[in-house]
Nucleic acid binder design. Structure first.
Lengths: 129, 129
DNA sequence: CTTCTTTTGAGAACTGTTCCTAGAAAGTTT
DNA sequence: AAACTTTCTAGGAACAGTTCTCAAAAGAAG
């Protein structure tokens, strides 16, 4: 278990308070509120460390920058095709890769990444969608 | 329907012949075999055009560079956790987002991106996996 | 052949991320 | 508490992947 420095605490706080999943740049901006001298490099470095420690999740789907999720539990995400935000999405049932593919043709399937696409609440409510 | 220039034909050829899904850089390297003066910018520009035309697919999951698939039909992919290649994977049944999430809490789910992770044939066959 | 439009090649610019290093902070030992 | 060791940080340089710019080349139309 790694030590929680002031900077790491700030980053973790930011991610846990966020209701959407933030980019490193966004984490940096928010973290500067509590830790004004923190640097972007520190943010990147510690985001990776927190991922390794299993305290947060890194989400690399989609073409833009990566995003970070303060909730380390497995759960589904919805990416808004209109505003680009990434949010949590409650799932009715768990996804099991074995339902869809066989590990029989020589390859091995260990897991899957699943991301839903559509409109977030805010964008779905707007008229010009 | 867009015009198929020599460069576009070469790019399409490269992607259709490939048995794994290539990065722009890899497409560039291969395309130079048939079109030696082609530039990397042209490759990027035309990959995007071919995606818009629905002739190829762009795959942006994963943290590395994007990859391109010469087969425009919907199908599943396996990313090898060992060597990083991205290959096609036959699926036993189609994935239907509605089975997993409701579009009822205000947001709209239109589709999903699904990518399997594991070991490709080659890596699964090696002893030190 | 002239004109108009589209595309290209070459490289500069940009974005997001990682790397490097001297110094600061925290942890240990005495 | 001082001296020492280890870990971490700020700041910026370096890097990778992608997009942009623009003069020139290629192609279509008259």
């Amino acid at each position: 278990m790694v030590r929680l420095t002031r900077q790491r605490k700030a980053i973790l706080e930011v991610l846990r308070r966020a209701h959407e999943h933030l980019t490193a740049e966004e984490v940096y901006a928010a973290a500067r509120g509590m830790e004004p001298r923190i640097s972007l490099g520190t943010v990147y470095r510690n985001l990776d460390i927190l991922v390794e420690e299993g305290l947060i999740q890194k989400i690399t789907t989609g073409s833009g920058p990566m995003r970070f999720d303060g909730n380390p539990e497995k759960h589904a995400h919805l990416r808004c095709q209109r505003c680009g935000t990434l949010e949590d999405l409650p799932m009715k049932k768990a996804f099991d890769p074995r339902e869809y593919v066989d590990s029989s043709l020589g390859h091995v399937v260990r897991g899957a990444v699943l991301e839903f696409h559509g409109l977030c609440r805010r964008c779905a409510a707007e008229p010009d969608a």
